[in-house]
Design a binder for these strands. Structure first.
Lengths: 110, 110
DNA sequence: TCCATAATTCGAGTATAGTCGAATTAAGTT
DNA sequence: AACTTAATTCGACTATACTCGAATTATGGA
C-alpha cells in the first residue's frame, strides 16, 4: 500500500463514528449490515452515517451492495491487510527482530 | 488497548506530517532522532514539528529523552503493538479464519 | 554573566472536517 | 401512477485542526 492510501485509511479510522462503524462491520463479518441497521445500532443520523460510510468506502475500508431498497455494507479486510502491512514496513530499522514482539501480539481467537 | 486510545493513535497517524515523522522514527530504530534532525529531514518548521511531536507523544506513539540541548525522539513500538491488536479484535466475527490472510500479510524482513 | 543554539509555547489566521435539516434519488408496494 | 421507505446529496453552520511568526524556556559554551 502506498503512503497516501494508508493516510486515507488512517484518517478515516481516526474518527469516533467511523471507527465504530468499521468495527461493527468487522464484527458483522461477511453478512455485513444495511445502512439503516448501522445507523440504528450506533445512534447516528442517516445522512451523517451516509457521509461517514462514503469516506470509509473511498478509503477502501468498506464496500457496499444494494439489496432491495437497502444498501448493505461490508468491512473490506483486503485494505485492512494492506494498512497493517504498511504500518509494519521497515519496522526493524536499526534493530533486527524489534518487531517480533509486535507481531506476536497480533493473534485472534479463531 | 481501549477504544479511545486507539482513536487517539489513529487520528495522530492519520495526518501527513505525523505519519512521516512516525515512520522516520520507526526506521531510525532505537537510536531515534533529535527534533532538529527530524525537522530538517522532513522539511517542516520547528514549531510545527514540535506541535506534531507532542500529539504523537500524547498518543503514546513516540517518547523522548533530552540529550544535551537536543531532545531525541523514539518510536514507541509498545503502543503500535496495542493498536494493531485492537484493530484485529473480533476480526473473525461470523467467519472463523477470515483474519488469517490478514495476519499472513504482516511479515517483516528481519 | 552574556551569548548562541535547540526546542517549545503562545496567539492568531485559515482551512478542513463533522453534523444537521431539507430536498432528492432509488426501489419496492398498492 | 401514487405512495412509502431507504439511503444519499446538498448547502450551510460550527467546531476543530494545521500552520505560521513571534516570544519564551532550556541547555551549553565563551
Amino acid at each position: 500500500m502506498e503512503k497516501n492510501r494508508a493516510l486515507e485509511a488512517l484518517s478515516a479510522l481516526g474518527q469516533d463514528t467511523r471507527l465504530d462503524v468499521f468495527r461493527l462491520l468487522v464484527r458483522a463479518g461477511p453478512e455485513g449490515k444495511a445502512a439503516g441497521e448501522i445507523a440504528e445500532a450506533l445512534g447516528v443520523r442517516p445522512n451523517t452515517l451516509s457521509s461517514n460510510l462514503n469516506i470509509l468506502a473511498v478509503a477502501g475500508l468498506v464496500r457496499s451492495a444494494r439489496e432491495g431498497r437497502s444498501i448493505r455494507y461490508f468491512a473490506n479486510m483486503e485494505t485492512m491487510r494492506g494498512l497493517l502491512g504498511f504500518l509494519m514496513e521497515d519496522c526493524c530499522g536499526g534493530e533486527p527482530g524489534a518487531c517480533q514482539p509486535v507481531l506476536d501480539q497480533i493473534t485472534c481467537n479463531c
